[in-house]
Write a protein that binds this DNA or RNA. Structure first.
Length: 647
RNA sequence: GCUGACGUAGCUCAGUGGUAGAGCACUCCCUUGGUAAGGGAGAGGUCGACAGUUCAAUCCUGUCCGUCAGCACCA
């Protein structure tokens, strides 16, 4: 007999080989009816699975959070059946669950389009309405390959070959249709319900490799009920309103145009934000002992041969043409590091100079693939808040930890409390000995452990010259972007001939730590806009207050307020337009101006202002001097607010 | 780069094989109005670029450029 433990702690004995469904039926028919799967010792399993050991069991109903992935996975199978029914000859490949939904990759000569969705969804509803039971069979490798080969499912045959020898080959059937699948599934297609929707089609390479054929991927989303589906769709609409490309236009921050793909035209307001951020970073860097330098935009391409970039990234470099009177080819810098190494090399350095921290707001250019470009997030010309810390091997972990800590401090100033850290170790294509890589990776791990922050491993994703930590932020629609980074480089300084004089008098190659806090200013601004949904805090907002006149009687008073604001370092503007106050309030609210100072004849006479904050309909009248003092205090950047406590 | 979709006024979008339209924005006039759109008039377009088909192309075909989504890439 086996002992089964129930969620309430009760234990019961059963004969080995009893299925979950039988146990549920034994308890009550209604439980069996509403149970769609089970968890054995916490692991989701088919309700039909036979139990032959002591376990704890939980019956999963449709409203259990764990049912969500089953609903989506089953929906993917139904999608595949629907597509193969409508277009026989289409090959199936894989169809996993993803965040917020699922997809299925198909191979077919004719691509699918969104116009096909209604037909596919209709067929899916039919399959769901038939409430076909999911049944599982375990096949032998040979049998499975034979069946799929005969069906012309060549991709499935390849998948079977990739399954490790010890693992069972499971086939899930829903009526006549079946698929190779790891499972588990719900008891029948009817459990999926009707709260699903096909979202988009896209190409995707077979097995994620650009050398392989391209498949058509159909994305869908599925939820336990219509309400949750509607909520999700509504959330997507709201996220669209936060899109920095849209807000960038609405707030008059920047634009792009065809002549400069992947390069930003910063407008005055966007540049104000950019400058506010660089000033902030300058203070932070100075505080941490960095020296700001500036290195050439264009250097002999030979330098990039030395670093290894020409070999690995030739296609991504912007190169000049050879000139008749000069045989040399120049490259626009894709990174700042070689420039900083030149600064380091200029003049003899001693171990006493280390750690030496060189920083630069370096504008770099990379010929990114056209399909990679995305607003401010992925551009071809961007500004790094780049720095290189030259250290001895012994100093690596300590300096890395310092950078990590400052980075997290800085992110907090922008409300990013839960930054995710990825540790990317050695890639296949790399320079330098493995002994060196061992050291570099160990140093980063030590720093991570000492910081106590959670992190995940990003296997094989390091830079070609060294491992890295990536600090990842998420945009409005859930896409992840690398912002900050720390990289340990035991290769490049040596390649470029940098050394310092050790206490022994020997020449020793320094280790270089590459670090960026925002990463790319452009990307960080994109993330910030979406993070704040355009509602920038006062210290960042390009226009901090708009003085709106009620009638032209207050024009000169309004202008005076703007001037006084400017004199104390506040960015005010006046709206003297011949429009009603309703119109002005609406216009500037839509432009995300954080503070509206409304002035009419009354305020001009009494020297007061009526204050209205973005996102609120409250209005408060107060003496102008008080309002000015209040806004001035509020507009102090967070780091300077902290510093005031020190003075 | 790959697959697919898209490109018409500053923005959002209609539209047609016979050289274009709306709303908002813009300019001017009237209005001086107290917290999310006052009224009127006007101006504004090589219909992404280049070829081809056609008597005639913004519309059909092709190539290119750009944008969007996903994939691949991301020093």
């Amino acid at each position: 007999m086996i002992t089964v433990t129930f969620p309430d702690g009760a234990r019961r004995e059963f004969a080995p080989g009893i299925s979950g469904l039988e146990i549920a039926k034994g308890i009550s028919p209604s439980l069996a009816k509403r149970t769609i799967a089970m968890a054995l010792d916490g692991v989701l399993s088919d309700l039909s699975d036979k139990i032959d050991r002591d376990v704890s069991i939980e019956f999963i109903s449709r409203d259990d959070p764990r049912a969500l992935e089953l609903i989506r996975h089953d929906a993917a199978h139904v999608l595949a059946e629907a597509v193969q029914t409508l277009w026989p000859g289409t090959q199936v490949t894989i169809g996993p669950v993803i965040e917020n939904g699922f997809y299925y990759d198909f191979y077919r000569n004719e691509p699918f389009t969104p116009e096909d969705f209604p037909a596919i969804e209709k067929k899916m509803r039919e399959i769901i309405a038939k409430d076909k039971p999911f049944t599982k069979e375990v096949w032998s490798r040979e049998q499975a390959k034979k069946v799929f080969r005969e069906k012309g499912e060549n991709f499935k045959v390849e998948l079977i070959d990739a399954i490790p020898p010890g693992e069972d080959l499971k086939i899930y059937k829903q009526g006549d249709w079946f698929d190779l699948c790891r499972g588990p599934h719900m008891t029948s297609t009817g459990k999926i319900g009707n709260a699903f929707k096909l979202m988009k089609v896209a190409g995707a390479y077979w097995r994620g490799d650009a050398k392989n054929p391209m498949l058509t991927r159909i994305y869908g989303t599925a939820w336990p009920d219509q309400k949750q589906l509607d909520q999700y769709l509504h959330m997507l609409e709201e996220a669209e309103k936060r899109d920095h490309r849209r807000l960038g236009r609405e707030m008059d921050l920047f634009h792009f145009q065809e002549e400069a793909p992947g390069a930003v035209f910063w407008h005055a307001k966007g540049w104000s934000l950019f400058e506010t951020l660089t000033s902030y970073l300058r203070r932070a860097q100075m505080d941490a002992g960095y020296l700001e330098v500036n290195t050439p935009q264009l250097m002999d391409s030979q330098l990039w041969v030395q670093t290894g970039h020409m070999e690995k990234y030739r296609e991504m470099l912007f190169l000049t043409e050879k000139r008749e009177d000069d045989e040399r080819v120049f490259a626009i810098k894709p990174m700042n590091c070689p420039g900083h190494v030149q600064v380091f090399k200029n003049g003899l350095k001693s171990y006493r100079d280390l750690p030496l921290k060189l920083a630069e707001f370096g504008k770099v250019h990379r010929f990114e693939p056209s399909g990679a470009l995305h607003g401010l997030m992925r551009v071809r010309a961007f500004t790094q808040d780049d720095a290189h810390v030259f250290v001895t091997e012994e100093q690596i972990a300590e300096e890395t930890l310092k950078i990590n800590n400052q980075l997290l401090e800085i992110y907090k100033d922008f409300g990013f409390e839960d930054v995710r850290i990825k540790f990317s170790d050695r890639p296949e294509q790399r320079i330098g000995d493995d002994v060196i890589w061992d050291k570099a990776e160990a140093a980063l791990k030590e720093a991570l452990e000492r910081s106590g922050k959670a992190w995940t491993l990003n296997k094989g994703e390091g830079a070609f010259y060294g491992p890295k930590l990536e600090y990842v932020l998420r945009d409005a629609i859930g896409r992840d972007w690398q912002c900050g980074t720390i990289q340990v480089d035991l290769n490049m300084p040596g390649r470029l001939g940098a050394f310092y004089i050790a206490p022994s008098g020997e020449k020793v190659t320094p280790v270089m730590l590459h670090r960026a806090m925002f990463g790319s200013l452009e990307r960080f601004i994109g993330i910030l806009i979406e993070h704040y949904a355009g509602h920038l805090p006062l210290w960042l907002s390009p226009t901090q207050a708009m003085v709106c006149t009620i009638t032209s009687d207050a024009d000169s008073y309004a202008q005076e307020l703007v001037q006084t604001g400017a004199r104390v370092g506040l960015r005010f503007e006046a709206d003297l337009a011949n429009e009603k106050i309703n119109y002005k309030v609406r216009e500037h609210s839509l432009a995300k101006i954080p503070v509206l100072l409304v002035v009419g004849k009354k305020e001009a006479n009494e020297r007061t202002v009526s204050i209205r904050r973005l996102g609120s309909t409250d209005q408060k009248s107060m003496p102008w001097e008080d309002a000015l003092a209040m806004l001035k205090a509020e507009a102090v950047p967070p780091d300077l607010q902290r510093a005031e406590g020190l003075a």
